[in-house]
Design a protein around this nucleic acid. Structure first.
Length: 869
RNA sequence: GCGGGCGUGGUGGAACUGGUAGACGCGCCGGACUCAAAAUCCGGUUCUGGUGACAGAGUGUCGGUUCGAUUCCGACCGCCCGCACCA
């Protein structure tokens, strides 16, 4: 009943008056009014340090890059988070739900080069626009905590954290390879390399070695892997992907002696996970960046040409691994540690310098890549492992055998299984002093240096005498200069006339600032901590982070499953090591949403991409361009992207249908972890439902002849809906919550004869259950039904009455041999005997039994009866 | 290439822990209201056969386990995501 103790006294005496009755729901008037009411009541504000005894809950969606406009992916992400925030708040939690901007990055520099707009101006204008758009969505965000990572107040604190890490030995300077555009004189991101060429200059890209800053994430590899087991509220697939990325593998590291020394090198060290197949070796392969490759290049122009070809592939692992396997025989030879036989050393384009030692021994019989390589260059392919009980004609000539089995052709390893042979081979290598068993990690240290302007300056100074000197704390933040020139290629910080010239803080002599800036993943690796005390004069305030962290529910795209999340997990540990936080894991719960997709359209005449609003769909399934009627090719459903023009502008949707409709549709379409297809008709349907609820709310008048039986059924439906919606919200199956609310609305519509009290109870429950999803309509109807009774945003969540959830009878399916032959209605606590008797009396069941004796009877309470004949 | 995921009517999807496949929405079909349209309301809608009661088939494909499989196991096919300088 409406009086189940859930009315709270009017918290806000001046809640807005509802709209006039009997009109169409005017979302354009209602939505801004309720947004203002929430803001005036400070419904979503929480203190940096929660009061004792408060149940805190930190909801966070991945903050957006301020590209200029919000897109449907944002609408989905922030709607999901808002449902959680509003639901948890109603459940009595003190909810922190902040928003900010991942504001450094390449697009701002591209805009500067293309349009001459300064990155800061472009970025802050985009932020202003996107903030306004987000506000129109009616999100329960606490805007007081907002910041952008390009604010000096933020990145200055980041510089402090970096210097703390430097002091703690968590930062190193090392050389690494980058994509280099020789014409533009610029380092390129992988996405700026297209078919091996720079995206602007079109010049073939080269790999170049640069001295860069690295976070020592590999020091944490074992615990980053192990702690995945504690992340119970993370999707299993994300944990799996991270585990594979960290890539722990057991194997051996050992040296091959070179048959003859090369430039002072007498051996070549390799890493392998398959020391058991060492007798099946037919060549040794090194990466193009390996010292032996360099030595070969110095002797042979063809080798140099091959290395140049490898360098032209860029640094993308996906590109390298998909390229055709190619190699070059250096003419050097190595000696097998067990047999003394000698083997050729090849440079191979599939060997990665970053993994293991940059060199491997090739065993084509038992490795896919080695097999492809050996087949191509006519190198021997020897079987050394066979499946147990292998046929006499077992061969690895056509296909390598990579599973467990029994070792053959391997002298003293023969007859062992693979794990035993691995142990034996490692023991022998150790005994010989050639190498040892090791654990290898695929994870590499995190290179954070970027040769770009629009990023956080790395706060160090290079002095010829003192080396690398940290910028003293009292000189932080190191602020980006505003007067920069984007007309020249390269890093504007580097060719700025004055900015980099400073005196060394140690010796006072002229020195140079570091002109590299941080990878933007650094910015996003601790923003969640900064939100706890966003204006503090230190990176984080201990009392605030200790109280609010970890994030209880983090929500974002699956595309961040590895890098952003792994870097954040590392950075949190680094902040712990430097005394800023107490915890290891930043995100206790993670939810990864799917993408928003749409059909794509191209003109059949000139193949140009078309926006959905330019296209008219005809009844026969074909489509034409509005106005010109030129035929349109309806393309695949794919991720919304600007280049394919298959985007829908959330602003336009909100203008036309209102924020609640957009939110409701985006939640109702499908489960949030899956990709969703945006459809006009789906939005229109959501809009119709809102109209229907609005009309239903106005029909809350007593029936002429109230029917108690209908009332009881309605009350049961109401409380079942409360239980079902609660369960669905807990499970993140918001589409199911929407369906259950639809069912309740259908039942209210069918219960016009129920007593008014039951109808009102149902209506109020509907409103409160749907409030996390369509908060404006909920407030509007609440105010209509209960003027002056406060805001739904401040009401507690409903609880179902268990007495009304109980059912007296159950419908059982009756199967004969597993096939449905009828249903019976039984009391919920009917005995097996009663149930079987009823089942076997069903006419259709009798026909299916066909007079045969029943051999076995199965009864699953409340579900099914199965008769086996 | 390597790693991860997904696949159910015309369509998005639902289905507790292995127990009536298709809840709910969209679309479509029919009807009411209207001069007409929009809006709204009511009914129908997995496929095949049958007037019907009903029967048969059916959750990407093929096979297995089980009294019973969308659910568990194996192989395959298709699509999607990530691969370290996009965010």
């Amino acid at each position: 009943m409406p009086g189940r103790g859930l009315y709270s006294p009017s918290i806000m005496p001046d809640t807005p008056q509802p709209l006039h009755h009997d009109t169409r729901y005017d979302f354009a008037a209602a939505e801004p009014r309720w947004q203002q009411a929430w803001e005036a009541a400070r419904c979503f504000s929480v203190p940096d340090v929660p009061p004792a005894g408060a149940k805190k809950y930190y909801v966070l969606e991945m903050f957006p890059y301020p590209s200029g406009k919000i897109h449907m992916g944002h609408v989905r992400n922030y709607t999901l988070g808002d449902v959680v925030a509003r639901y948890k708040r109603a459940q009595g939690h003190l909810v922190m739900h902040p928003m900010g901007w991942d504001a450094f990055g390449l697009p701002a520099e591209n805009a500067a080069r293309e349009r001459g707009t300064h990155p800061a101006k472009w970025t802050y204008a985009n932020i202003a626009n996107m903030r306004a758009e987000l506000k129109r969505m009616g999100l329960s965000l606490e805007w007081e905590r907002e910041f952008a990572t390009c604010d000096p107040e933020y990145y200055g604190q980041q510089q402090k954290l970096f210097l703390d890490c430097l002091k703690a030995g968590l930062v190193e300077r090392k050389e690494s390879w980058v994509n280099w555009d020789p014409v533009d004189g610029t380092v390129l991101a992988n996405e700026q390399v297209i078919d091996g060429k720079g995206w602007r200059s079109g010049a073939p890209v080269e790999k170049k070695k640069l001295s860069q800053w690295f976070f020592a994430i590999t020091k944490f590899a074992p615990e980053l892997l192990e702690a995945l087991g504690t992340l119970e509220r993370w999707p299993e697939r994300v944990r799996l992907m991270q585990a594979n990325w960290i890539g722990r593998s057991e194997g051996a590291r050992f040296a091959f002696q070179l048959a003859e020394p090369v430039d002072g090198m007498t051996d070549c060290e390799v890493f392998t996970t398959r020391p058991d197949t060492l007798f099946g070796m037919s060549f040794l392969a090194v990466a193009a960046e390996h010292p032996l490759a360099a030595a070969a290049a110095a002797r042979n122009p063809e080798a140099a040409a091959f290395i140049a070809e490898c360098r032209a592939m860029g640094t993308s692992e996906a590109v390298i691994e998909q390229a055709e396997k190619k190699g070059f025989d250096t003419g050097f030879r190595v000696v097998h540690p067990f047999t003394g036989e000698s083997f050729p050393v090849w440079i191979a384009n599939f060997v990665l310098m970053e993994y293991g030692t940059g060199a491997l021994f090739g065993c084509p019989g038992h490795d896919e890549r080695d097999h492809e390589f050996a087949s191509k260059y006519g190198l021997p392919i020897l079987p050394v492992v066979q499946p147990r009980g292998a046929a006499p004609d077992f061969s690895v000539a056509a296909k390598p055998y990579t599973d467990d089995g029994v070792i053959v052709n391997s002298q003293w390893l023969d007859g062992l299984d693979v794990p035993a042979a691995k142990r034996a081979a490692i023991a022998k290598l150790e005994e010989m002093g050639a190498g040892q068993g090791v654990t290898n990690w695929r994870l590499r240290d995190w290179g954070v240096s970027r040769q770009r302007y629009w990023g956080c300056p790395i706060p160090v100074i290079h002095c010829d005498d003192c080396g690398v000197v940290p910028v003293p704390a009292d000189q932080l933040p190191v602020v980006l200069p505003e007067d920069v020139d984007f007309s020249r290629p390269g890093n504007p910080l580097d060719h700025h006339p004055t900015w980099k010239h400073v005196n060394c803080p140690c010796c006072g002599k002229p020195a140079r600032r570091e002109t590299d800036t941080f990878d933007t993943f650094v910015d996003s690796s601790w923003y969640f901590a900064r939100f706890c005390s966003p204006r503090a004069g230190e990176p984080v305030t201990k009392a605030a982070v200790d109280a609010w962290l970890p994030v209880d529910q983090y929500i974002g795209g699956i595309e961040h499953a590895i890098l952003h999340l792994l870097y954040s997990r590392f950075f949190t540990r680094a902040m712990k090591a430097t005394g800023h936080v107490k915890l290891d894991e930043p995100f206790a719960g993670l939810f990864t949403q799917g993408m928003v997709t749409h059909e794509s359209y191209r003109s059949a005449v000139d193949q140009r991409w078309l926006y959905p609003e330019e296209v008219e769909k005809l009844g026969d399934g074909t489509a034409v361009v509005k106005g010109t009627n030129e035929p349109v090719i309806v393309g695949r459903i794919e991720s919304m992207s600007k280049s394919k023009r298959n985007t829908v502008d959330p602003g336009a949707i909100i203008n036309r249908y209102g924020a609640d409709t957009a939110r409701w549709f985006i939640l109702s379409d499908n489960p949030p972890e899956r990709d969703m297809e945006w459809s006009e008709s789906g939005v229109a349907g959501a809009s119709r439902f809102i109209g229907r609820i609005w009309r239903l709310a106005q029909s809350m008048v007593e029936a002429d002849k109230p029917d108690e039986a209908v009332g009881k059924k309605l009350r049961q439906a109401t409380h079942r809906a409360i239980a079902a919606v609660t369960e669905a919200l807990e499970a993140f199956t918001f589409n199911v919550a929407v369906a259950k609310i639809h069912e309740l609305a259908n039942t209210i519509g069918d219960s016009a004869t129920a007593p008014l009290a039951a109808r009102r109870e149902a209506m109020e429950a509907l409103v409160r259950l749907s409030a996390p999803m369509m908060p404006h309509l909920a407030e509007e109807i609440w105010a209509l039904l209960n003027p002056g009774r406060g805001l739904v945003a401040q009401l507690p969540w409903l609880e179902a009455d268990p007495a009304l959830l109980r059912a007296e009878t159950a419908t059982l399916a009756v199967q004969v041999l597993g096939k449905l032959r009828g249903t019976i209605e039984v009391s919920v606590d009917a005995s097996d005997e009663e149930v079987f008797a009823l089942a076997e009396a069903e006419p259709n069941v009798i026909r299916a039994l066909d007079g045969k004796p029943v051999k076995k009877r199965i009864h699953v309470k409340g579900r099914v009866v199965n008769l086996v004949i």
